[in-house]
Design a protein around this nucleic acid. Structure first.
Lengths: 197, 197
DNA sequence: CAAGGAGTATACCGATTGGTATACTAAAGA
DNA sequence: TCTTTAGTATACCAATCGGTATACTCCTTG
């Protein structure tokens, strides 16, 4: 019995791995089942479709990640740079804990808008965006007059962090290296104070 | 005769449009041919494979874009903020001129590493990266001691600009609006001097 | 006019796609 | 022991995939 429920996890794991490696559309369910050591109907028993497989991943992995970020943003207590640093560290931590899952998420976020995979991921990315927008709005008193520039800040901040993580991935830098606290602080510092220092 | 050579352009145009909308792997050659008003063998006559279609796009559209950026980076004459602004404006201009093509490029750049589409795009993205890295190295005297932080700057700068363009696309902001010189200057200013101002 | 090549369409290829009908096995509850 | 139920596999489906062999229609050149 225990190796049966284990099958579900193995399928999801194989799916994330293959989606990460070659892309959602480029991978067939057949291949996922094969990699998980099961047959296709078993896959369709747990996840009713290929998209259901992706949605299960989002609900079980991405959702908790969203919550972590929302909690940090909500816990803001008056030191913007610390919260920003905490947010950046958490993002990198999430990437470190399950590297493939995080890169899959980013890839999907940057993929074609009418793609069904993108549509499934978009709500989760918007949640993260809104959590941070809320933080910037709340931190307005400490960051000077932002008059509507909160969104621009979030765009930049997210852009910097995500692009950093993606470039680290491209170069196959191991997580323990790219998750270096000092490097992350440098990114945050640069974001806040500019490239002069 | 003229409508025959026109077919090639129509096929490429349709391909870019569909790849942009739904992703490289999600689109079949059949569909591209149909959208272009031709049949499959005609497509295979001009572009010998589906990947060849993508490679043609890269060579004919992405290559000139790379050259424009390289020229701007090479023309640097001592005012970093102006060159950075010029680079940002050029990127946004390129996106404005052929919006779908640029977003397709970004999507592919952020897609799975082992995907054949990503492998085709990667060299071009690296060219852009290197052009900018070169600029930051050359501008070292004006930007203070960067001791090896050039790459981090480029990562941030590219991240900000690309993420900005992608977010504008997600929100379906028309090019004439997101290409606003003042908004772009704000991004560059923020990059250089931080979010305090 | 004849020859040849560029460009296009009809019709096909084997392989794979996402997805399912059906029957089986194993375990648990009555 | 009998029944039920969750989980799994065999074997299949129509549709589509990327790609091509072949023949045709033009237009150009000799």
């Amino acid at each position: 019995m225990e190796d049966r429920t284990d099958n579900r996890a193995k399928i999801l794991e194989s799916a994330v791995h293959l989606f990460y490696q070659r892309g959602y559309d480029a991978v067939g369910v057949q291949e996922i089942a094969l990699a998980a050591g099961v047959t296709k109907p078993t896959l369709y028993y747990y996840f009713k479709s290929k998209l259901g497989l992706l949605e299960a991943f989002l609900k079980e992995w991405c959702e908790p990640a969203c919550i972590r970020l929302e909690e940090i943003a909500a816990a803001y207590q008056g030191v913007p740079s610390e919260t920003l640093y905490a947010l950046a560290c958490t993002l990198v931590d999430i990437a470190k804990e399950n590297r493939e899952a995080y890169f899959l998420l980013l890839s999907l976020n940057y993929s074609a808008r009418e793609n069904e995979a993108f549509k499934a991921v978009f709500p989760y990315m918007r949640r993260m965006f809104r959590a941070m927008t809320g933080f910037f709005t709340g931190a307005g008193d400490k960051l000077g007059n932002m008059n509507g520039r909160q969104e621009q800040f979030v765009i930049s901040f997210q852009g910097i962090i995500n692009h950093y993580i993606l470039v680290m991935d491209e170069r196959e830098i191991p997580p323990e290296e790219f998750a270096d606290p000092h490097a992350i602080w440098e990114l945050v510092r640069q974001f806040m104070y500019g490239i002069y220092s």
